[in-house]
Design a protein around this nucleic acid. Structure first.
Lengths: 147, 147
DNA sequence: TTGCTCCTCACGTCACGTGAGGTGGC
DNA sequence: TTGCTCCTCACGTCACGTGAGGTGGC
């Protein structure tokens, strides 16, 4: 983690870094999945920071791996956004009870995502087992022929 | 596995059994992912067998769990179809060399699918690890507060 | 200044969803 | 015969892809 001085990136670079396309990034902005890049005059280029690249990487990962619509994904990520908000609040309070409460919510959001991931994993595991069973079966028959 | 006497099913029942919709099944027929139900006069109802239900279940599973387009899926399933074809040939030959060759191809097709599944699983595992790391981190901080 | 990337419409596409209006089959 | 499910268009939608024609910024 080098202390990259907050470089500002253009949409094409961000697309490359995140494995998407400029069109996809604009579309996500259009539907509110990404915030509109700050105070841009009509026709001027969009400018992104590393933080936004991270956000898009996370969106893409969840989009590809869980089977959610962008609307469902949006709700899940609102939770993420809420977490970021909470972290800001967190830094502004010294009260341990308040800090614990904020961290508790954090845990809940992570838990929601973990559950979705685990459900998917279970389905994939089942598919893998089925395929391996077939594989074993074919191999056994092959071995019988060879004997 | 009860010896279900080859019941014939209608599209709505098949949709229910496979977690899809009639529209989806018709669409898959339209693009050739499913064979057109045999010799049906214009306007008459489609009729399905248990075997076709299994085929659709497999399509749905692969569609949901791997991130493939229906065209890519179609190619993958052509391999499946080829396997079914091979099994028929298989039953018609007694020559062990021929039988072994057919089984070898079978193994190859299963291998292709298994590789796709494993790639997905690796990505999901990585996401899970990341989420668990965050979870652990938050938990440690919480524990510190409580002490 | 040149050249590349970016911009905004706007229409196309994939994988279906959703009626409209009509017929099949238990 | 009634009622439900099915049929075939055909247009709508989601998540972008793909030009067209024009401008921004190193």
């Amino acid at each position: 983690m080098s202390t990259t001085s907050a470089r500002s990136l253009r949409i094409g670079e961000v697309a490359e870094l995140t494995g998407t396309t400029p069109r996809t990034i604009r579309y996500y902005e259009e539907i509110g999945l990404l915030p509109a890049t700050d105070a841009r005059e009509q026709g001027k280029h969009r400018v992104y920071s590393e933080a936004e690249v991270e956000r898009i990487r996370e969106i893409v990962k969840l989009r590809d791996l869980l089977g959610l619509s962008l609307e469902q994904l949006s709700k899940l990520l609102d939770a993420e956004t809420a977490r970021a908000e909470l972290r800001r609040e967190y830094r502004q309070t010294d009260e341990p009870g308040e800090r614990a409460r904020i961290l508790g919510q954090s845990l809940e959001h992570i838990g929601t995502q973990l559950q979705l991931v685990c459900e998917r994993r279970a389905e994939l595991d089942k598919l893998e087992r089925e395929l391996r069973e077939r594989q074993d079966h074919v191999r056994r028959v092959l071995a019988e022929i060879d004997s």
